[in-house]
């Protein structure tokens, strides 16, 4: 028996030689797979000029309010955007006032926006211009809901590219009930309503 073991050690099939062989084989397999994966994927990969960025489709958005709460940022990168060219410039604005308010004045209890981000400016009788103060907007979408139910739908939510962290997977997209958040290509960086 002992002799046999000795024989084995002297043999070129000794465990040491075999381990070495396996290691070389492993290296070859690893190198081959690196080449195969990169080769296979390079044909699939698109250049960075068609990189995609997260945007909301305003037509699909249901203003559920998750954009405010589910963004990875403390204050959401989703902001309300106002399409002036769609707006009716109404005095009684569904996005500005809450429904069933007693008096139409700018007291906070009458206003839809919880942070006072919507500013209103008199243009001419009977038209008012509405603008969004982006630094105050938290993307809750309350005004959007009001505007789309009682108005032209000129207020809408959109992900601001300069604020968005461009997460690998958008945290809001994973909870969006209407799958409104998808990636769009760089040549059309914003999904806007007034274009």
């Amino acid at each position: 028996m002992e002799q046999k073991i000795e024989n084995m050690n002297e043999n070129k099939n000794s465990p040491i030689a075999r381990r070495k062989f396996l290691r070389v084989l492993g290296t070859a397999v690893a190198g081959g797979s690196v080449l195969a994966i990169s080769g296979g994927l390079f044909s699939k990969a698109k250049g960075s000029e068609v990189s995609h960025y997260w945007q909301i489709d305003p037509q699909k958005c249901t203003q559920c309010g998750r954009c405010e709460t589910d963004c990875v940022l403390q204050v959401s990168a989703v902001k309300c955007i106002h399409a002036n060219k769609v707006c009716g410039y109404c005095d009684l604005c569904g996005g500005y006032y809450r429904s069933n308010v007693k008096e139409l004045n700018t007291a906070a209890e009458n206003l839809m926006c919880p942070t006072g981000a919507i500013q209103r400016k008199f243009v001419e009788d009977p038209y008012f211009e509405y603008t969004i103060d982006e630094s105050l907007c938290n993307g809750c979408g309350k005004c959007v809901k009001g505007c789309s139910s009682f108005g032209n739908g000129s207020l809408y939510l959109q992900i601001k590219r300069d604020l968005c962290k461009d997460c690998n997977e958008c945290a809001i997209a994973t909870v969006c009930p209407s799958d409104a958040i998808t990636r769009v290509s760089l040549d059309k960086p914003y999904k806007l309503k007034d274009e």
Partner: peptide, 20 residues
Amino acid sequence: RFPKPDFESGYKYPEIHYAV
């Protein structure tokens, strides 16, 4: 629901550009 307003005071739509 509401038609586009006809402005008589020469009001122009604000130009808005978004940062990319």
